[in-house]
Design a protein around this nucleic acid. Structure first.
Lengths: 109, 109
DNA sequence: TACATTACTATGTATTGCAAGGTATAAATA
DNA sequence: TATTTATACCTTGCAATACATAGTAATGTA
């Protein structure tokens, strides 16, 4: 076991939450998402992001629309669906509870 | 996908961190650990805890000693090893970074 | 046409949370 | 003594997901 693995595990699920937080702001396409997450110190690669976006779309959490690009391949812009907004609210609650749990355990010392 | 599943995913790695936070305080055996985590609103079942404790012990993060009980089966009391204390410090750093990431993304709205 | 870039997909691996069930020790009871 | 009960420990199998790797498809450029 090493720290990198532990960090990777801590990010499970949390990454999904972060992407929904980002899309709450406005529509983004995949390269934008990767760059915005990088700005927030969250490194994500395509092999991680694309399956995640597909899963959220299939679950009805996200929707997308094609937009032409000034050059190259057209882009998929993802947005939160109504169900996605409800889901996000639930995740915010869940994350808050987890933060409180850790805070409580740290406070005991 | 549902919220319970998402919460379960969010707990990956974080649970390991919480148990190490708890054992930083003093030695505990499994039933104590479950109860203490329950007090911190973190529900853990045996099928989750035992494999996790075994793994941390095999990795040299935890050690244990048997202690007689006033009634019933003797108990395994787990403690943090020196390596475990180093690992915990790294996890605290990792958790702090993740909290900052989420905080940054929430702040953008 | 050939090439480069960008967006996307498909597959396999490792890790982990969790349910379900089993084993072992010791006290209580018949 | 034999059986039951309580407590504690452990194992197996499954599902979900991050990630690496490799490949496909569509568009613009030389």
């Amino acid at each position: 076991m090493n720290v990198e693995n532990a960090k990777s595990q801590m990010r499970k699920g949390m990454l999904e939450y972060c992407i929904m937080l980002l899309l709450k702001e406005k529509p983004y396409y995949s390269s934008d998402i990767i760059n915005r997450l990088k700005e927030a110190d969250l490194l994500v690669v395509e092999g991680t992001l694309y399956p995640l976006l597909s899963r959220l779309k299939n679950d009805g959490i996200l929707a997308y629309e094609w937009q032409e690009s000034d050059k190259g391949h057209p882009r998929k812009y993802y947005v939160l669906s109504e169900d996605g907004k409800v889901m996000l609210a639930n995740l915010e609650q869940a994350w808050s509870e987890i933060e409180n749990t850790v805070h409580n355990l740290k406070g005991k010392q």
